[in-house]
Simulated assay, not measured.
Amino acid sequence: MSALDVAGEFETIRRLLAPLAHPEWGRGLVDDVAVLPARPGYDLVLTKDAIVEGVHFLPADPLDTVARKLLRVNLSDLASKGAEPFGYLLACCWSERCGWPERMSFVDGLRADQKAYGVWLLGGDTVVTPGPASFSLTALGWSPKGRTVSRAGAQPGDPVFVTGSIGDGWLGLQALQDRISLDPERLGALADHFRTPVPPVGFAPVVRDLATAALDVSDGLIADLGHLAAASGVGIEIDLERVPLSAAGAAWFEGRVDPQAALEQLVTGGDDYEIAFTVAARDEAALRREAERRHVRVTRLGRAVAGAGVTARFAGKAVSFVRTGFTHG
């Protein structure tokens, strides 16, 4: 039985998606557009990401986790700009496996995260595809006028930081594909990070107030620091020994025969959804106070320097990467 036999487009919108709509701006999803009132003194910040079955999530992943990942990877982008999220536009390309129960599960995931992050559905589209399921989301946020943090503000001498831990996204995929061995609790934690990463949304005000440049870590730490370096016209130097690991990541790392090669995998694997950023050296103490107050782990990886590209060192020696992160063809 096809998805069309069990749930048509308008039934899906009316019964499942309309209850998620903003009570005023979304117009109940019965119109062709959403209408947003202007917010004096603020800039509208927009970001868009798509996820595809077999590329960004596994065919066996429950659709509630797929929906939550879709929303969260976009909220990660907004957080790295210092923006406050408020709504999103959604496009669903349902595959043949997406019958009514699967669509209900998808919406359950959105509903839970709308409540957790204070955002509303504003509009979008749904279609059926003979190919793999795919979903696209455009997230919208507010930032005080002229204060949205870009990738382009780092200066030589600025310390380079990252929130949270690195490598759990890549390790989570390995866990779900039975490619690593750890105790069940740690395997579960890694799998959860791959399926439902937790972006540091509450850290956005600190980024806005103190960061000179920032971006979220999605393609891989080395690749994304390279993007920041290129936009800012600086080089970035980091020490791989400083890369922060979670408890599960550290447990996996402790068993590696070649620690340098293991760290290279963690910093190029992607799917971390943390924030990499620079601050002025004079603001480092303030940054650490704010991070501690908000219970956010921040780690100094290195610094921005005159030059170009990313230079990573391990045991004092420069490391050359075969690949710096995930790229789409």
Results as ranks from 00 to 15, higher is better:
S2K: 06
V6G: 01
G8P: 08
F10Q: 12
E24W: 02
G28E: 08
G28Y: 09
L29C: 01
V30Q: 12
V33L: 03
P37I: 11
G41K: 10
G41D: 11
Y42T: 12
V45D: 03
T47Y: 01
V52C: 12
E53L: 05
H56A: 08
F57K: 04
D61N: 15
L63C: 10
V66A: 07
R72W: 01
L78F: 02
A79C: 03
S80A: 15
K81V: 06
G82F: 04
A83T: 02
F86I: 04
L90N: 06
A91R: 15
W94L: 15
W100E: 15
E102S: 10
E102T: 06
R111Q: 13
K115C: 02
G118R: 07
V119P: 08
V119M: 03
L122Y: 08
T126N: 01
T126E: 11
V128F: 15
T129D: 03
P130V: 12
P132F: 00
P132D: 04
A133Q: 14
S134K: 05
F135V: 11
T138V: 14
L140M: 12
W142E: 09
S143P: 00
G146E: 11
T148Y: 00
S150K: 08
S150L: 13
R151Y: 02
V160A: 09
V160Q: 10
V160F: 09
I166G: 08
L171Q: 12
Q174G: 03
R179I: 01
S181Q: 11
D183F: 02
D183M: 05
P184I: 00
A189Q: 14
L190R: 09
D192Q: 14
V198Q: 15
P199F: 06
F203R: 08
V207Q: 03
D209L: 09
A213L: 04
D216S: 07
D216H: 12
G220H: 00
D224C: 10
G226V: 05
H227C: 00
A230Q: 14
E254N: 12
R256T: 11
V257L: 13
P259S: 00
Q260P: 08
A261M: 11
Q265G: 09
T268H: 01
G270S: 06
D272L: 05
D272F: 04
A276P: 11
F277E: 10
A280Y: 00
A285G: 07
L287R: 01
A291K: 11
V296E: 09
R297N: 10
G302K: 12
R303W: 08
A304Y: 04
G309R: 12
V310G: 05
A315H: 04
A315T: 00
V319Y: 01
F321D: 03
R323Y: 03
H328N: 15
H328D: 15
